[in-house]
């Protein structure tokens, strides 16, 4: 804000620039989103034109009911499934990653280098798909919701551990020591003293990871196939085949699926930004 204002310090230029920026943002970003909304409320015939026009009639309620009812209320089931998946896996990630990040930051041992290496590998290495299915099958977790939840936790842990480790470094050690003098054991120290102090980074992790898990398509596709297990992203994929001539319903589905991230964005903009830019400054 402060710095780069000075980059463009010549006065008078910024009005033209602002106008250009705003107009292009409308063309590039607003029109596609407006297209989703407009198409979602059109009737079937008009939506098939695929053009950017005002709806002749507003079919919002009817399209909404149609898309919810489609395939025996698959969308409702999918929203329930996605909610369970998101809540359970994000909760798991937060608790496990906070514990790991806490010890990783506090306890200096010769394993730290190796553990850090594993954490970074988790960020970089693409998961091996079929062997993961093989492992899940051996455990009896393939095509089950608990299996998918554990998968999401495993793949999301690295990012969370990095955030927690960085944040724990800002909590003074004296606090731990005081708690220990007062007789707190390791679990009490962590859950009663440290965990509450992690609040702000927990919010960041929860917001960023719930958007990620909610939007995840690949893992449900591989590890939880089948209509009755569908998550919301998979309904989109299934509907796109079925509704190839009913664009109004397809776009109503897209619209409904965009609402949860939109709500997150409106309420937690700051935390999302904090989470996603962490590491940008330090490198």
């Amino acid at each position: 804000m402060s710095t780069a204002e000075l980059v463009n310090h010549r006065p008078g230029r910024s009005y033209l620039l602002s106008a250009v920026a705003i107009v292009s943002s409308i063309v590039v970003f607003i029109i596609p989103f407006a297209f989703i909304v407009l198409t979602a409320v059109k009737d079937r015939q008009q939506s098939a034109d695929l053009d950017f026009s005002w709806p002749h009639q507003f079919h919002f309620v009817q399209n909404f009911v149609d898309v919810v009812k489609a395939r025996d209320y698959m969308l409702v089931i999918a929203f329930i499934n996605s909610t369970i998946l998101t809540v359970a896996s994000v909760a798991g990630m937060v608790v496990l990653a906070a514990m790991a990040g806490f010890v990783l930051q506090r306890r200096k041992s010769r394993w730290n280098g190796f553990i850090n290496f594993l954490v970074l590998s988790g960020l970089i290495i693409p998961p091996a798909v079929v062997p993961t299915i093989w492992v899940l099958q051996k455990l009896g977790l393939f095509k089950t919701m608990p299996g998918l939840i554990l998968i999401e936790i495993a793949f999301g842990l690295s990012f969370c551990i990095l955030l927690f480790r960085a944040f724990v470094a800002t909590i003074p050690r004296e606090l731990d020591e005081a708690a220990i003098i007062d007789g707190a054991g390791p679990l009490r120290l962590f859950f009663r003293v440290i965990f509450p102090l992690l609040r702000s980074v927990i919010i960041t992790v929860v917001v960023v990871q719930s958007v990620n898990v909610f939007n995840d398509f690949v893992n449900p596709l591989y590890f939880l196939p089948g209509d009755k297990n569908a998550t919301v992203q998979l309904t989109l994929y299934n509907f796109s085949g079925q509704f190839s001539t009913q664009y109004n319903l397809l776009f109503m589905d897209i619209l409904l699926i965009t609402i949860p991230p939109l709500i997150m964005f409106l309420f937690f903009n700051r935390q999302i930004v904090a989470g996603m830019t962490s590491g940008a400054v330090k490198g």
Binding site: R107, P127, P131, V135, P186
Partner: peptide
């Protein structure tokens, strides 16, 4: 107070669902 047990649940999930498949992939 910084018990290695804190790593355990993370380590188990990560090893079973990420490391094992990754190493298995080299063989398979």
């Amino acid at each position: 107070p910084y018990s290695f047990w804190f790593y355990l649940p993370t380590a188990v999930i990560y090893a079973v669902l990420f490391l094992v498949p990754t190493f298995a992939s080299f063989y398979y």
